[in-house]
Amino acid sequence: MFHSPVIECQGVCKAFADGDSVIKAIDQVDLEVFGGDFICLYGASGSGKTTLLNLIGGLDRPSSGEVFLDKHPLSHYSDDELTDLRLHKIGFIFQSYNLVPVFSALENVAFILQMQGFSNRDALAKSEYILQQVGLSKLMHRHPAELSGGQQQRVAIARAIVAQPKIVLADEPTANLDSKNSEQLLQLMKQLNQELGTTFIISSHDPQVIQAAERKIELADGKIIHDSLA
C-alpha cells in the first residue's frame, strides 16, 4: 500500500431531482483510495454504491465536493478530458459485461488499446497476452454471443486491465454469475490486483466479494457508515 492516495473524495455530494423533492444519493462522502487497494463498496440497494463509483470514474459529476485522481481535481477536467482520462487511467467492469457484440473477445480487448493509438499488431499481441492471463487463450476469437456469462465477464476484466489503468471500477461484477463463476472471477481480480498492483473498487451485494475484499466500505443513505480493513 502506498501513502499517496490515488483517489480522494472530499465532501462529495450527489443529488437528483425527483419531482419537487431532491434525493441525496451521495451525502458528504470523504474517502481516500490508495494504489493497490482491493475495496468492496457494499450496502443495501439505493445506498449510493453505484453513484459513488460513477463519480470516482468520471462518468458523472458531483453536485458539490471534489473528486481527485492522482491529486488532480476532476471538476477541472472538460468532458473531452474526462473521456481521455477514462480511456487511459480507468478500467470499467459492468454487471452486464457490455462487450461490443460485433467484435471477438480479442478485438474487444484490443479496441481499448487501438483507441489509445496503438498499432493493430501491438494491440492484438498485448490483448492476446492478457486474455491468456484471464484463462481465455482458446476462446479469444469467439464473439460475445458465443461465450458464457463467466467467460464474457473475464473478457470484460481483460478489457479493463489491458491498458494498465490506475484503477479498475467494477459494478456488481458477479451479479449475473453463479457462485462457481463468481469465485473464479474474484480470484482472478485478486490475482491481478496482487500481481499488477492495480487498484480495484468493486460495488457488490455478493457476500463472497465482500468477504474477499481487503477493505470493506459500507454505505447507507449515501453516507459511509463503516470503513474497515480486513
Binding site: 467484435f103 479496441f111 487501438q114 489509445q116 493509438g117 498499432s119 493493430n120
Partner: peptide, 18 residues
C-alpha cells in the same frame, strides 16, 4: 502523433464496418 491518430481512425472504421 499523426500515426496514432491513423490507428484510431482505422479502428473507428473497422468498428463501423462490423
Amino acid at each position: 502523433s499523426d500515426r496514432q491518430q491513423q490507428f484510431i481512425n482505422r479502428s473507428v472504421r473497422q468498428l463501423a464496418w462490423r
